[in-house]
Amino acid sequence: MANSPSGDSVTDRLVRILETFTPTRTVQTAADIGRRARLPRSSVHRIVNELVEVGLLERDEERRVRVGMRLWELATRSSQALRLRQAALPYMERVQQRVREHTQLAILEQGEALFLERLSAPDSGPNVTRVAGRLPLHASSSGLVLLAFAPRDLQERVLAGPLSRITPETIVDPSALRRTLAEIRARGRVVAPGYVDAVSTGVAVPVRDETGTVIAALSVVLPRDAETHFALVEVHRAARDIERALGYRP
């Protein structure tokens, strides 16, 4: 696609505009989009208008902009993430009903844990995770599982740091993180008390596809001082059921 005077392609500018939307920032003005995307006002208005015309973005009564249903429709067609979520959902519901705490499914996406689904009870405890939200690999229980089974080059990039400290318990020492990843591979689980939220403990296990490759992490977020054994039993059982649904036969 043609470049702008600054050297950005149309695709670059389009992606920068779409990336201004987040799980907590779902509606914006065109001016907000331009500021966050660091693009000229004229470019933003032209691209936003074109995206609205084809349904990828929508405007409300106040002329504010949000992601359009057509973008969601296109994104879910033949999506591997959708197939994984559909296979996992019945077993996640069983975990959530039995444990009665947040139950989550995450995948590795561009060096972060991307959450595809979260089920919660009305009385579930605090949780920073949102559907379509991201967390650092080294700080969350799901992220640690994904990192433990990630390609070696990604592991080394993360271990090279810097490792941001989110809470006092977040692992920020590369040697300690390397040992933790080895333990996860050996045990097939992780318990992460207070790593990403001081009042919560995450427990997570890997999920494999039909080839035996770890493609996701299934986790439960518990109150910080809660007993973890029962939740681990349930997520292990659910992960094995999801794997069978995906065609994995150990």
Score class of each variant (00 low, 15 high):
116 L>G: 02
97 Q>W: 09
54 V>P: 11
181 L>W: 00
13 R>H: 09
134 R>A: 10
70 R>S: 09
58 E>Y: 03
204 A>L: 02
168 P>N: 04
222 L>Y: 07
120 S>E: 15
141 S>K: 10
125 G>D: 11
75 A>H: 03
208 R>H: 13
165 R>F: 00
129 T>H: 04
166 I>R: 14
183 E>V: 09
140 S>Y: 07
81 A>Q: 15
101 E>N: 06
81 A>D: 15
85 R>M: 11
68 G>T: 06
211 T>H: 14
117 E>P: 02
161 G>L: 02
120 S>G: 06
66 R>P: 08
35 R>G: 14
44 V>M: 09
222 L>S: 03
150 A>H: 00
216 A>H: 01
111 G>F: 02
131 V>L: 12
71 L>D: 03
193 P>D: 10
161 G>A: 12
184 I>W: 00
145 V>H: 05
184 I>V: 08
250 P>H: 00
145 V>I: 07
237 R>Y: 06
49 N>W: 13
42 S>M: 13
169 E>H: 06
50 E>V: 08
197 D>M: 10
185 R>D: 04
61 E>P: 08
241 D>T: 02
234 E>T: 03
136 P>W: 11
205 V>R: 06
201 T>I: 07
244 R>W: 14
15 V>D: 13
72 W>H: 14
241 D>C: 15
243 E>M: 09
158 V>N: 05
210 E>T: 09
193 P>R: 04
130 R>D: 14
7 G>R: 06
230 F>Q: 10
115 F>R: 00
33 I>F: 01
27 V>K: 09
69 M>Q: 14
129 T>W: 08
233 V>R: 12
66 R>T: 05
130 R>S: 09
39 L>R: 06
33 I>R: 01
218 L>P: 05
128 V>P: 13
213 T>F: 11
212 G>F: 10
27 V>G: 09
101 E>H: 02
30 A>G: 06
19 E>S: 04
147 L>T: 01
183 E>M: 05
116 L>A: 08
138 H>L: 04
61 E>S: 11
19 E>R: 07
244 R>L: 09
186 A>M: 00
96 Q>N: 13
35 R>C: 13
42 S>T: 15
171 I>T: 03
50 E>Y: 07
158 V>F: 02
17 I>L: 15
149 F>A: 08
207 V>W: 02
44 V>G: 10
178 R>S: 11
197 D>N: 15
52 V>S: 01
231 A>S: 09
1 M>R: 04
173 D>Y: 01
204 A>T: 03
191 V>P: 02
10 V>G: 12
10 V>F: 12
231 A>F: 00
82 L>M: 15
21 F>D: 11
51 L>E: 05
164 S>R: 08
175 S>P: 10
225 D>N: 01
